Simulated scan of single mutants.
Amino acid sequence: MAQENNQPTPAEAEPKTDPEFIPAWGPRVEGEIFEYSTGGETYQGYLARNVNDETPRPAVLVVHEWWGLDEYARARADQLAALGFVALAVDMYGGGQVATHPDQAGEFSSQVMQDWPAARARFEAAMAQLRQHPAVADTGMAAIGYCFGGGVVMNMALSGMPLEAVISFHGAPTQAASARGEFEGVVQIHNGGADSLVARDDLSAMARALEAQGANVKVINYPQALHGFTNPDADALAEEFDLPLGYNAAADASSWQAALLLLDKTLNQ
């Protein structure tokens, strides 16, 4: 009695490959030092992008907290790069300086805000250099900022910088811009409802000033959120330096989602 041969033929043994189902690679985010110069000084930003994506993408500038261009600002740039933007965490202090104590941070940030023409020149130099990068699309740009950086980007809008969107997270609403200009973009301000470092009157005055320059302004307050509510290190910094800071996961997630929706609407359409 003949035995059946159940072994597959060579043709059947070969796996069938359908080109339509070959998986694509996800984002591979890489960061690099990004230098730009103005006023005889060199600034060391951090550029993050998805190197698996060869299509030029819209750019977002990220302005750091008063501590300087630290790991938190770089992490936010990495997040934006993974989501399809080219992100530049700018260096507003020069030489990549990072403060290690609130007194030093206050000194650094005050020097920047008290000389607004120089601050604007630094930001403009970063924008101009960023536009030359081959990974950046020839479209509009946006800027986001945290604490000190939130104040910087709000003042950039007051100055009439060519940005499609400006987003501030627990930003200082001091009006430092010495010269005002028309701003046709959107300004989104995320503020902690329990933030003792941001005066409500100052925040309202900033919103009114931005509207007077033509901006579409939206202020979002998060109940019980303290200053620095987006930074997971805020609790540790509060304990170390006795500062009224605090991380708030719900406010962090909500504000980030709102920011991403605005970036998508203003930069990707």
Rank of each mutant, 00 (worst) to 15 (best):
A59S: 08
F123Q: 04
V153Y: 00
M1C: 15
D252G: 01
C147A: 05
D235Q: 04
Y46D: 15
A234Q: 01
G31S: 15
V60Q: 13
R28V: 09
R74L: 12
A142L: 07
T38C: 14
R120I: 09
Y247S: 01
P162Y: 00
F148M: 02
Q213V: 10
V219P: 00
D115S: 03
C147Q: 04
E41W: 14
M113N: 09
A250P: 11
G106L: 04
A172S: 12
Y146N: 01
P8D: 08
T38D: 12
A73S: 11
N52L: 06
T139V: 11
R122P: 12
T42D: 15
M127A: 10
D242E: 08
M154L: 15
Q257T: 12
G192W: 01
Q44H: 15
D115Y: 00
F34I: 05
P8A: 04
F85V: 08
K16G: 07
T9Q: 08
A205D: 13
V219F: 00
F108W: 04
A142S: 13
N155Q: 12
D103L: 15
R120N: 06
A179D: 00
D103C: 12
V60P: 11
G214Q: 11
A176W: 07
G150H: 07
N191M: 05
T17H: 13
I189F: 00
F229W: 04
G228C: 00
A77N: 10
E14D: 14
G160Q: 03
P102H: 10
W67S: 01
L226G: 12
L262E: 06
E107S: 03
E14G: 12
G68L: 01
R122K: 14
N268F: 02
L243Y: 12
A251L: 12
D53V: 03
P102K: 14
Q129R: 04
A212M: 07
P15W: 01
A205H: 11
D202G: 15
D91I: 08
Q114P: 00
D70N: 09
T266D: 13
H190M: 07
G40A: 04
T266N: 10
V136F: 08
L245R: 08
A177H: 06
F85Y: 11
I33N: 15
V153F: 02
G246E: 07
E240V: 02
P102F: 13
L226R: 15
G26C: 01
A212D: 01
A238F: 02
N268C: 12
S109A: 02
A234H: 02
L245G: 09
R131M: 05
C147V: 05
G39H: 10
G193C: 02
K218S: 10
N5E: 12
G171D: 04
D235Y: 06
F241Y: 12
M141D: 14
R120Q: 07
A118Q: 03
D138R: 05
E239D: 03
P8H: 05
G228W: 00
D264C: 09
R208Q: 09
P19M: 06
A11E: 14
R200C: 10
Q97M: 08
W67A: 04
L267S: 03
